[in-house]
Design a protein around this nucleic acid. Structure first.
Length: 423
RNA sequence: GGAGGAAUGGCAGAGUGGUCGAAUGCGGCAGUCUUGAAAACUGUUGAGGGUCACACCUCCGGGGGUUCGAAUCCCUCUUCCUCCGCCA
């Protein structure tokens, strides 16, 4: 959520920046400012009424104390009108405030100046590429065929037990996945991230805090009996660990890493591009979350990007980095870099990581602040990144490391796996 | 799941209808003293809105109610504690 004060002061700048998202924000922002003005007027009016009423109450109290009941009762009658007025003003204020918030929730984050304008993923800007694309032998298979051939992932079994999009990992497939989780967590903790194991379900307030609610309600599984949501990413519970906090300068930066399953309803889109591990309802992910001072957040974003690069380099997977254009940028993000691994057998790029700076957009909803050296309260910046989304890394490894009669294991994973090939 | 109890400022802990945003202690900050530190003493110290700055308004777990007036009374929800039951 954007800060009202920021909108008041930079309306035109925000409108210009949001054009990169192909969004004409003018009507929205005008409506917001109008509601804001109305809200503040009502607040002032209500305050004055309450002040008057408080004053009378105090006088009544003192009159009673001094035994002057008759005069006190006379004053009581004066309060009736004030009470009526403040009730009415209060109701108006409440409805105006919620109308204002509703509008405010509709406005996406302002893109960073480096974000290119664009309508769709075709306008994303490739900024880095590394690793050789392997030349596979004739008859190279996509990962869902490999999974079957070596009996390491069973999609049909998952359908039987739960439904489509809930695969069962078996034998060396399960072990490889566990190895990846352990390897990522080790790399992240070595880089100074504190490992956390958060809850896999969150309450409504947490959903609002990181921006999944109210807009993307349908993306999350909702456990109605208890009004809880299955997390779509560890970002939600981990960032919410600090919801409402007032941090000290020495607390920052805060760096977390966590492994969780992620649950996404992902209604829509079926077909070749979502085959196998490409898109699932449940998948594993190791996440990075950082809370930073505003002036440090872009350096932090670069650090996270470098960190993910190192991991992909060690896995020897060919990858590229995209700077997302305005049209493809997530609602809450100011700047996002997507990492994509090239899947040779599918002949396409697979998104395996997304690293974003939300600036104060989440912090504003979360009321996540710190008190700086001058005692001034400021919103912190929040960032997160995947490191990494497991199924697609797995897909990339299976496809790029396949040989005629087996799948090699990347060298760095062998100690974690306890075997060096799947056959 | 059943029966009781509790929730107050960074922490501990008073406050059961009227200048209570809240005693007191600890902690924090500033100062005095000291070569320095500690101790002692003095002052100061919650948050949000609002204002150029004041004024003023709101907040005693959340929501609602009674009252001229609520931390205090009523309803409700949540969380925590104790006992019983069940349980990986």
């Amino acid at each position: 959520m954007l800060q009202l004060q920021h909108i008041r002061e930079n309306k035109n700048g925000i409108i210009d920046a949001l054009k990169k998202r192909s969004l004409d924000a003018e009507p929205m922002l005008s409506a917001i400012l109008e509601l804001d003005e109305k809200r503040r007027g009502l607040q002032t009016e209500l305050d004055a009424t309450l002040a008057e009423s408080n004053k009378l109450s105090k006088e009544i109290g003192m009159l009673f104390k001094s035994g002057n009941a008759a005069e006190a009762n006379a004053l009581k009658e004066q309060t009736a009108g004030l009470k009526e007025a403040s009730k009415k003003l209060g109701e108006e204020l409440t409805s105006t405030t919620s109308a204002l918030e509703e509008q405010l929730y509709q406005v996406p984050n302002v893109p960073h100046e480096s974000v290119p304008a664009g309508a769709s993923d075709e306008d994303n800007e490739e900024i880095f590429r590394e690793g050789d694309i392997p030349k596979l032998a004739e008859g190279a298979l996509p990962h869902w065929e490999l999974a079957k051939k070596y009996d390491i992932i069973d999609f049909e079994l998952g359908v039987k037990v739960t439904g489509a999009g809930f695969p069962v990992y078996k034998g060396k497939g399960a072990r490889l996945q566990r190895a990846l989780v352990a390897y990522f967590l080790d790399k992240n903790t070595e880089a100074g991230y504190t490992e956390v194991q958060p809850p896999h379900m969150v309450n409504e307030a947490s959903g609002y805090g990181t921006g999944q609610l109210p807009d993307k309600e349908g993306q999350m599984y909702h456990v109605q009996a208890d009004d809880l949501y299955l997390i779509p990413t560890a970002e939600v519970p981990i960032t919410n660990l600090h919801r409402g906090d007032m941090l000290s300068p020495e607390d920052l930066p805060i760096k977390y890493t966590g492994y969780t399953p992620c649950f996404r309803r992902e209604a829509g889109s079926y077909g070749a591009h979502v085959r196998g591990l490409n898109r699932l309802h449940q998948f594993d992910k190791v996440e990075l979350v950082r809370i930073e001072r505003p002036e440090a957040s872009y350096t932090a974003l670069d650090e996270m990007t470098e960190h993910v690069k190192v991991i992909l380099r060690e896995l020897k997977l060919p990858y590229r980095i995209l700077r997302l254009c305005g049209g493809d940028l997530g609602f809450t993000s100011a700047l996002t870099y997507d990492f994509e691994v090239f899947s040779t057998a599918q002949d396409r790029w697979l998104e395996i990581s997304s690293v974003s700076n939300f600036e104060t957009f989440q912090a504003n909803r979360l009321k996540l602040r710190f008190k700086d050296e001058n005692g001034k309260r400021q919103l912190a910046h929040t960032l997160n990144g995947s490191s990494l989304a497991l199924p697609r890394v797995l897909a990339g490894i299976l496809e790029n490391y396949q040989t005629k009669d087996g799948i090699e294991i990347p060298e760095v994973l062998i100690p974690y796996c306890g075997f060096d090939r799947i056959d």
